[in-house]
Computed example of a mutant assay.
Amino acid sequence: MKTDQIKEIEDLLLANKKLKEENFALNRQNKDLKQFSYLATHDLQQPINNIISYLSILEDSRKNLDDLGNLCLTVIKKSSFKMKSFITSLLEYSLIGNNPKDEYIVIADVIESVKEVLSDKIEESNATININLKEHQLYCYKNDIHLLFLHLIENALKFSKENETPEITIKSEIKDENYVYSISDKGIGIEEVHFKNIFDIFYTINRDEKYEGVGIGLADCKKIIELYKGKIWLESTINKGSTFFFTLPKA
Rank of each mutant, 00 (worst) to 15 (best):
Q5P: 03
H151E: 15
Y181T: 00
L138A: 08
I52F: 06
G97Y: 03
L19T: 13
V214G: 01
A15E: 14
Y104M: 12
N70K: 14
L12F: 06
I153D: 12
E21W: 10
N206W: 04
S80Q: 02
K142M: 12
D120S: 10
T165E: 12
E92S: 03
K78M: 01
V214A: 05
N27M: 07
T128M: 03
E21P: 11
E8T: 11
N70H: 00
N197P: 03
G69C: 05
M1T: 15
S172G: 02
E135F: 08
A15C: 08
N239P: 10
S242P: 00
F244W: 13
L13R: 14
K63Q: 13
I238T: 15
V114H: 01
H151A: 14
I201E: 05
T169S: 10
E209N: 10
A25L: 08
L12T: 02
K101E: 15
L147G: 12
I76C: 01
I216P: 00
D66F: 06
D109I: 02
I232M: 09
D32F: 15
K142Q: 15
E21N: 13
V193L: 08
H146V: 05
L12K: 13
D4A: 11
A108M: 07
E177C: 06
L133W: 02
D144Q: 03
T41Y: 01
T88Y: 07
I201Y: 09
I87Q: 05
I48Y: 14
Y211H: 08
Q29I: 13
L26F: 09
L44N: 14
E164P: 00
H42K: 15
G241S: 04
K229G: 09
K186D: 10
P47Q: 06
D67G: 00
V110S: 07
H42F: 01
I224N: 00
K171W: 11
L157H: 04
P249F: 07
K2E: 15
G189V: 05
K222P: 13
E124A: 14
H146Q: 04
K84T: 03
I170L: 03
I216G: 04
D220Y: 00
D11M: 07
F246A: 08
L65Q: 11
I107W: 05
N126A: 01
I111P: 01
K101H: 05
C221N: 08
K222Y: 12
L71N: 04
D4L: 13
H194F: 09
K7L: 14
I87K: 04
I105S: 01
E177F: 13
N99L: 06
E167A: 06
F81E: 14
F159G: 00
N23R: 12
N16Y: 11
S53A: 06
E177L: 08
E192S: 12
E164W: 00
N143M: 09
V106Y: 00
L248S: 06
Y38K: 12
M1V: 07
I216E: 02
S94Y: 02
A156C: 07
F199D: 04
N143T: 13
S80C: 03
I188V: 10
E177G: 10
E177D: 15
K210T: 15
L95W: 03
K2H: 12
I131H: 03
N206G: 02
L39V: 14
